[in-house]
């Protein structure tokens, strides 16, 4: 089993996520079930459209991900406040897989 990496042996060589990985993580985080080739076709089509929109914007404001440079402020703003993030986390009764629905019921239960 691999031991946790220490400062001394990882030498700071973290690998930056590719934009596809960023959007993939965001999309998955908005769903209760794993999104893969067995998912509902509607979910997969939605993912395809959202991913392309996000990638266009994210790549454009962040230059070449292969250079392993740091992220940019517009990228951080897009991750925090972008349309995609809002849609993924909102309450949507039509999507029973949405994490937003779970959050809504949790808040309801604890009286917030």
């Amino acid at each position: 089993m691999r031991q946790p990496v220490s400062d001394s042996d990882e030498s700071g060589n973290l690998v930056r996520l590719r934009p596809e990985q960023v959007i993939g993580s965001l999309f998955q985080a908005g769903h209760i079930r794993t999104i893969d080739q067995n998912s509902n076709p509607f979910v997969r089509v939605t993912k395809f459209g959202n991913v392309n929109d996000f990638l266009n914007e994210y790549r454009h404001i962040g230059d070449d991900e292969m250079l392993q440079q740091v992220g940019t402020i517009p990228q951080a703003l897009l991750r925090m406040n972008g349309r995609f993030k809002a849609e993924q986390s909102k309450v949507d009764e039509r999507r029973d897989e949405s994490v937003g629905n779970l959050g809504s019921s949790s808040r309801h239960k604890i009286g917030r």
Binding site: P4, V5, S6, D7, E10, S11, G12, N13, L14, R16, V70, G71
Partner: peptide, 11 residues
Amino acid sequence: HRQFGAKRTLH
């Protein structure tokens, strides 16, 4: 466990 590397990302 990645203090040096994480700082370099300026995240």
